[in-house]
């Protein structure tokens, strides 16, 4: 293997320096909001997995607070088994919802109790109804929200904790809006959804706003990426196999090429 010539290294270093300087000089639009503080997530990192207890608490927060305005159209009741619920518990959750079905033989749409194979119904039949009920603002679907925002779960957590009332001095807040530190533009149509003790967790955990925010962000990360556990597990096996392969083929290469030099 030949050494990398000095000239090449110098040029590369100079280039990198130029780029970094330029990067520092440009005010990017993301700096409207402060940098997102990074949270600890059980699913972070190469060996991360979902904490099922947190998922269940997060689902409880979603169900009792967020679902009043936000749908999760890509989630089905049967998906909730991944949270650690038994099929019977899942069926009980499904049955507690009324789902629109039809048309029946008379041509009418009708309501019936949910089944595990149904998608979790949202609070509004369509976007227009959602806007009408929320002063023109459309509460976004949450089943993809973590993947649809820069910062993912950190963003959701920061947003939940980022409301400031009253807003900072000198900031003029439009009527019907609320000040949020981390929402681009700082004016969000959603009132602060969480308050201490708003939910009584089934497992007895104290429901502070940071706790609820952390759990609901975990749940929403799962909603966006339900296969993360499998992905990490399969990935570990693939990596192990490839590392062995790299070793074997490197040795083979050296052996075969030893006769060429």
């Amino acid at each position: 293997m030949t050494l990398v010539p000095m000239s090449r290294l110098l040029l590369a270093a100079a280039g990198l320096a130029c780029l970094l300087l330029c990067a520092a000089a440009v005010p990017s639009h993301a700096q409207e909001t402060p940098p997102l503080p990074h949270q600890e997530w059980s699913f972070d990192g190469v060996f991360g997995t979902y904490d099922k207890a947190a998922l269940q608490r997060g689902f409880q927060v979603y169900k009792q607070i967020c679902s009043a305005c936000h749908p999760v159209k890509h989630l089905y009741f049967r998906d909730l088994e991944a949270l650690g619920y038994t099929p019977d518990q899942v069926k009980a959750i499904a049955v507690s919802y009324q789902v629109t079905d039809g048309p029946n033989d008379q041509g009418q749409m009708y309501q019936r109790p949910g089944r595990p194979s149904d998608p979790i119904p949202g609070p509004f039949p369509n976007d227009e109804a959602a806007r009408a009920a929320n002063g023109g603002a459309l509460p976004p679907d949450l089943s993809m929200i973590v993947k649809a925002r820069d910062g993912g779960p950190d963003y959701v957590y920061a947003l939940m904790n980022g409301f400031k009332n009253p807003p900072p001095a000198g900031f003029s807040l439009a009527p019907g809006k609320y000040y949020n530190e981390y929402f681009p533009g700082h004016q969000i149509s959603m009132p602060p959804p969480l308050s201490d003790g708003a939910v009584t967790f089934a497992d007895g955990t104290k429901s502070t706003v940071p706790q609820m925010a952390h759990d609901v962000a975990t749940f929403l990360n799962w909603a966006s990426e339900p296969n993360l556990d499998t992905r990490h597990r399969v990935g570990a096996r693939v990596f192990l196999f490839l590392i062995v392969g790299v070793g074997i083929f490197y040795a083979a290469k050296r052996k075969i090429w030893s006769s060429a030099h």
């Binding site: 392969g245 790299v246 083929f249 083979a252 290469k253 075969i256 090429w257």
Partner: peptide, 11 residues
């Protein structure tokens, strides 16, 4: 020679 080198690079 190059089949094995390519396989190594592939891994």
């Amino acid at each position: 020679y190059y089949t094995v080198k390519d396989l190594f690079g592939l891994c």
